[in-house]
Amino acid sequence: MSFDDILDIVSAVLVLGGAFLTLAAGVGLIRFPDALSGLHAATKPQVLGLILVVLAIAIEARSWTTLLTLVPVVLFQMLVAPTAAHMIGRAGYRTGDFRPELSLVDDLADDIDLATREADRSPRRQRS
C-alpha cells in the first residue's frame, strides 16, 4: 500500500464523516420537537462537516494552495452560520414557534417579564 493510497483512504474517511453529519442534520430536522431545537441540528454539525470535506479536497488535490483557497469557505460559513442561527432563533422565539413546556429554564422570559413590568411602572411614576 503506497502513501498515495493511504491519502486516498484518509480523504474518503473525512468525506464519510461529513456525510454522516449531514445525515444527522437532516434526521434531527425531522425528529426534534420544535423549530428552535431543529435549528441546533441544522446549522452546527454542518460546520464541522464542511471543515472535514474541505480537508478532504485539499488532501485529494495534494496541494496547500487549494487548502488556502478553501479557507474563505470555512471562514464565511463560521461567520455567517451563527448570524443566521441568531436571526432565525430570535424570530422563532418572538413568533412563539417553540414549545414552552419543553424548556427547563427560561431566563429570557423572566427578564423580559421584569423589563416590561419596570417599563410599565416608570412612565406612571413620571406622570404623577
Binding site: L36, L48, G49, S103, V105, A109
Partner: peptide, 23 residues
C-alpha cells in the same frame, strides 16, 4: 466532540428531554 454529540442525539432512538434558555 459537540458536533458528534448532537449528531448522536438526533439519531438515537430516545427523544431529547428538555431545552433551556440560559442567561
Amino acid at each position: 466532540v459537540a458536533s458528534f454529540q448532537v449528531a448522536f442525539l438526533a439519531l438515537r432512538p430516545r427523544r431529547i428531554s428538555k431545552n433551556s434558555i440560559v442567561e
